[in-house]
Amino acid sequence: MEEMVIKRKTPGKFAKNFHKYKYRYVLLLPGLIWLLIFKYIPYSGLLMAFENFSPASGIFGSQWVGFENFQYLFKTPDFLNMIRNTLVISGLNIVFYFPLPIILSIMISEVRHVKYKRIVQSIVYLPHFLSWVVVYALTFFLLSVDVGLLNKLFVAMGMEKVSFLTQGSSFYIIITLQSIWRETGWGTILFLAAISGIDSSLYEAADVDGANRMRKIWHITLPGIKMTIVTMLILRLGRIADVSMEQVLLIQNPMISSVSEVFSTYAYNYGVVRGLTSIGTAVDMFKSVINLLFVFLAQMVTKWLGSDGIF
């Protein structure tokens, strides 16, 4: 009975609210138009992944080939390379980068002088606001053969120069160090917020018990931000197929292409530079699908753990 009443009421209310909020729709309009043109029209471009796309025939006129592009992709040796590179880059990031913001935020929260704390925070946040081009420039000035600081030191000490930027063995390390340098400080924001949310009476009680600072960190601070750590880790695992494209593209060169090619750089190098439009679309779409699966997986795990989830 109740449901029926509500159902009958809704149209009237809908129309009334529609009229009441007419100016809200005017404000929504620019964003909505932008969303439809720049986010939704590109979805139709995904058809190219199932076509033998030719610019002359367009997206809706090109020859349909089904999953041929994907089959081609799965067979190329590049594909296994891309999977390996993505997993290695993400894996190194999770193992070596992920714990650092947690450690740094605990150290910052232990600083007693407000002024020192502010200065440290201002400095460590800064690299996040520098472009990947600048980060690459710094890397180049440190490691290149011609102008690199390290090679200058090697020469001064009478050693051989090392071409770090063109040898495959150093690529993963460089990428990881770049991420650590740029994002560690910025990554502390969330953990600092969590630490400031811990009930201060817990620390006072520990003082009464005579606990030292290390014990307080171990028994109060860390358990207090445990949920934040777990949520961030799951979110990070959900983005495992995502590698920062600008970062990799900048450092990529023909000498190290086999260790540096990831899905999005392949999409650019083959789809745009070499004009293999359909293959490029397919590889990027494959990445997006994997991403989507991982995000849903992460969402399920966070829900299961009892937190609000991601959205």
């Binding site: 969303l35 139709s44 471009g45 995904l46 999005s264 679309t281 997006s288």
Partner: peptide, 18 residues
């Protein structure tokens, strides 16, 4: 409409074509 764009990105080439 907003959340779909968060979950699924059309990718480089479709944007380039647009």
């Amino acid at each position: 409409l907003v959340i779909i764009t968060l979950l699924f990105n059309a990718g480089i080439i479709p944007n380039y074509m647009l």
